[in-house]
Each structure stands twice: as structure tokens, then as C-alpha cells.
């Protein structure tokens, strides 16, 4: 028995290692290319360090855009979206989970429908709204369409429904008002869902390109992805992979570091919130 289990677990380990190597390969090649000189592409025989290592790609990538401003804007964008989202999904999630009111199912259906509409379809309409509000070329403009989240609302609705209703009743008997019930009962019990939602929200908005690109024009409000586009669009000279990879790594670095730091927490959250 024991022997067979070791054999099986070794096989599982081998499979996991193989899969993670496959997953790591693109990142590995991106790092490799970003440090190789422009004239030695990855296809040029000596795949590993046959040529020289250089920081030239990072230096030229750094020159192309005002990166410190882009970093600040990306952080403002994702945090600004997340903070408001947490507020709205908590309110809406609770309403759909616990309150009884006429038209609740219809409203929930509408929220669900919203998840099915591709954002590209709404581009012109959303732009018109932003312009009417006078928000064009501001950081707020990038955030506004994401302040409500259908996915987050549904996620919190499910999470709140799993909290035993008796806990809310007990708190009410103890004299807690609604805000206190949220603070002391619902939110602490659903932290894993919030963490999971935050991860999805942060990573998707960190990587968002089209909408910020459409509603902003000034480099001092544009996020990293729009800056990275400058390195990507070099069709009149052919592809400059080294420089592009250097820029890409600069852009994803904060997310990667965040993930490594909070890895265990994230995985626990995903496991307990049921998102896979």
C-alpha cells in the first residue's frame, strides 16, 4: 500500500512539475529575450546564454514612455475601481441575497445579462456618456464603467447566502443595526470571496487596454498598458522583441510580485470561494 502510494504521488509530482514548466516557459523566454542584445534573436542557435547579456533593452524601453506616471496611473485606476466595486457589490450582493422586494428576480436577471454583453459593443455609447459628463481624458473616466460589477454582485450574493441567517437574527437581537451586522457578521465571514474578487478585478484592470486608451489622451493620466503599446507598435522597423519583452516585464512586475507575496492567501481564497 505505502509503496503504491509513493509511486502514485511521485507520478503526480512529475505531472505537476511538467505542467508548471510548460506554464513557466513563456515567462522564461520573455526574461531571456529581454536581456539578450537586439541582434541575437532567440532563434539564433545559441538559445541560452551563448551571446552576451545586456540591459540595453530595458534602457531603451525606459526611454520610450513616462513610466513613473504610468505606474501611478495604473495603481490609481485599479485601486479606484476596486474601492468603489467593493462598496457596490456588498450593497447589491446583500440586497439580492437577503432582502425581499418586488422585481428582485427580474433585476437579478438584468445583472446577469450584463455579463453577457461584450464591452466592445458599448464603446461608443460609453464614450458618449463620458463626454457628456465632461470626464474625457481623466482617471475617473477610466474607472466609471467598472464601478458596478455583475460578476462581483453575483459572487457576493452567493457568499452572503451561505452565511447562516440565524447569525444576522442573533446580531439583531443583540441590538446591532444593519451597518453593524454587515461589519461584524457578513463581511468577516466572506473575506475569502472579497480577496478572490479583488484578485480578479486587479489583474483584469491592470491589463485593460482598450477602454483607457479610448478615453484618455494625455500621458499623465494613461495607465501602463497604453504606454506599453508604444513598444508594441513598431511595424515600420519590424519587431523589436527584446525591447518589447523588457517593457512587458516592467509592466507585469508589480502583479507578479503581488502574487508571489500573497500566493498562499490567494490560493486559499480561490479554494474556499469556489472560483477555479
Amino acid at each position: 500500500m505505502t509503496r503504491r502510494r509513493t509511486w502514485a504521488s511521485r507520478l503526480a509530482d512529475a505531472a505537476i512539475i511538467t505542467v508548471s514548466i510548460i506554464w513557466m516557459l513563456p515567462l522564461f523566454f520573455a526574461i531571456l529575450m529581454s536581456f539578450r542584445p537586439q541582434r541575437d534573436p532567440i532563434t539564433n542557435g545559441n538559445i541560452f546564454f551563448g551571446s552576451t547579456l545586456t540591459l540595453a533593452n530595458y534602457m531603451s524601453a525606459w526611454e520610450v514612455a513616462p513610466w513613473p506616471a504610468h505606474y501611478a496611473n495604473s495603481i490609481i485606476f485599479v485601486v479606484g475601481v476596486l474601492v468603489v466595486q467593493v462598496f457596490t457589490i456588498t450593497m447589491a450582493g446583500y440586497a439580492f441575497a437577503r432582502l425581499r422586494f418586488p422585481g428582485r428576480n427580474l433585476l437579478l436577471g438584468i445583472v446577469l445579462l450584463q455579463m453577457m454583453i461584450p464591452t466592445g459593443v458599448l464603446l461608443v455609447q460609453n464614450f458618449a456618456t463620458i463626454r457628456t459628463l465632461g470626464l474625457y481624458d481623466t482617471q475617473i473616466a477610466m474607472m466609471v464603467p467598472y464601478w458596478g460589477s455583475a460578476f462581483g454582485t453575483l459572487l457576493m450574493r452567493q457568499a452572503f447566502r451561505e452565511v447562516p441567517y440565524e447569525l444576522e437574527e442573533a446580531a439583531r437581537i443583540d441590538g446591532a443595526n444593519w451597518a453593524q451586522i454587515m461589519r461584524h457578521v457578513y463581511i468577516p465571514l466572506t473575506i475569502p470571496s472579497y480577496v478572490a474578487f479583488a484578485l480578479v478585478s486587479i489583474s483584469s484592470h491592470w491589463n485593460e487596454f482598450l477602454w483607457p486608451f479610448i478615453v484618455t489622451r494625455s500621458a499623465h493620466v494613461q495607465p501602463l498598458t497604453v504606454g506599453l503599446n508604444k513598444l508594441y507598435q513598431t511595424s515600420d522597423v519590424g519587431a523589436l522583441y527584446g525591447q518589447l519583452m523588457a517593457g512587458t516585464l516592467m509592466v507585469i512586475a508589480p502583479l507578479v510580485i503581488l502574487f508571489i507575496l500573497f500566493q498562499r492567501r490567494f490560493i486559499e481564497s480561490f479554494a474556499s470561494s469556489g472560483i477555479k
Binding site: 537586439q38 541582434r39 511595424s235 515600420d236 522597423v237 519590424g238 523589436l240
Partner: peptide
């Protein structure tokens, strides 16, 4: 399109058809 100039500067190709836009970087890298 993207790979051809580097193929030329790294010696994988002896002649290429490409845009004059690449000339500056080809001269720098060859």
C-alpha cells in the same frame, strides 16, 4: 514582417525585402 530584419542582422539571411524604415536599426545592429 517582424522577424525578417533580425534574421538579416544576425546573418540568417543574405538578402531581404523590407521597408526603408528598418534601415537605421539594421545599420545599428549589423
Amino acid at each position: 514582417w517582424g522577424d525578417t530584419p533580425t534574421a538579416f542582422t544576425s546573418g540568417q539571411a543574405a538578402m531581404i525585402y523590407h521597408t526603408v524604415g528598418s534601415l537605421t536599426s539594421i545599420l545599428q545592429n549589423a
